[in-house]
Write a protein that binds this DNA or RNA. Structure first.
Lengths: 193, 193
DNA sequence: CGAAAATTTGACATGACTCAACTGGAGTGG
DNA sequence: CCACTCCAGTTGAGTCATGTCAAATTTTCG
């Protein structure tokens, strides 16, 4: 079946009948995005939630002084969106950009409402996904509060080894909340040990 | 009716019938907690989600060096819990403590499952609540990344004026990610302007 | 009133930033 | 295949925001 990986992802959290899987599949479509392409632009209303089938995205905030602050990276099997914008239909706070060619499935509000009414179980699925994301987000706050730059980098390296390869260092620095120069110094210091 | 404020809170997000309101009320009970009391202890499994009827709580992480890092304050009409612990039944990452005498309604996993099956709409309600919390959490990450200590304080003051009165300064400092001494210096500097 | 807790203040230390110069690939075009 | 450019990454000197520690002061509350 075509949307196998997505269905499998859902079945990790709830159990869909064959009929429900069929119904769901019939409403989906893939979209292929190029490296560099924007899925959401800060200031414009975010119309979708995105499930990443393959590829990588970054979500970042551009402040008044033109600096980028990376909130999250997203890889296959994860969801991304500017949720605040999506649920209230107000201008997005963040940009979401593909860092590689990326294949996604996108969910508009209408599609989600339709799915909720036809497969009410999905309400539970999305609740669980958001719960997980909230837990991760709070843990990130704690790390930023309680760890210094060096330890945050070591944590990142240990927990997202795949990302360290695929993502340029200056973006990792931004994600960690430090400058690219300082990350470079941390790395060279770590090598000397 | 007894659980009026709670029912009103729910009705802000979904619409319950009279019968559903009755049913819901019949399953709830208040619990009164004293200032200083812990609702959740780091290291122990968190058994409930809490709705705050009145009072204030803080959620904080105690690191190896014994330092406290405040993740959030909670006041009336909000929810608090260690969600990671609650949903996976693993030891909690955080302490949750009452800063005043606090009246709560607590929801165990069993109660929530029961409610979900009897009032499926609540699935949607909780999804929305968690979505809101996630949006707030991500915004906090961005503020911590993009603003300096002084601006974070001004933001806090402007957006949570009520809390500034009720919460000791050293906790606000911890929430902002700075030391109490430095917050004190920021305040005195602001006064001189 | 008195003790404990919270806040303030000052001297000094340091982690992280800025800026500018330099290095080294990865294209690109002649 | 070389020369050129562009972008990511490195390195170093100087600076700044914030932290540490210790003492003084104020507030809270039994």
């Amino acid at each position: 079946m075509e949307f196998q990986s997505f269905i499998a992802h859902i079945n990790k959290h709830i159990t869909l009948t064959q009929a429900e899987q069929q119904l769901l599949s019939s409403k989906l479509s893939y979209r292929n995005c190029l490296k560099g392409q924007y899925l959401v632009q800060q200031g414009e209303v975010c119309l979708y939630e995105f499930f990443i089938v393959s590829g990588t995205t970054r979500t970042f905030y551009l402040d008044q002084s033109g600096q980028e602050h990376i909130i999250m990276f997203c890889i296959e099997d994860w969801w991304t969106s500017d949720m605040g914008s999506f649920i209230t239909q107000t201008p997005a706070d963040y940009h979401i950009q593909c860092l590689e060619n990326t294949q996604i499935i996108q969910f508009s509000r209408e599609l989600k409402e339709e799915l909720y009414s036809e497969i009410p179980k999905l309400e539970r699925f999305f609740r669980k996904i958001v719960e997980r994301a909230l837990v991760a987000s709070q843990k990130r706050i704690v790390r930023n509060l309680s760890m210094n730059a060096r330890d945050r980098y070591l944590y990142f390296k240990a927990n997202y080894p795949a990302m360290e390869q695929r993502i340029p260092q200056y973006m990792i620095a931004s994600y960690l909340g430090i400058t690219k120069e300082f990350l470079s110094k941390i790395k060279s210091q770590l090598l000397q040990e």
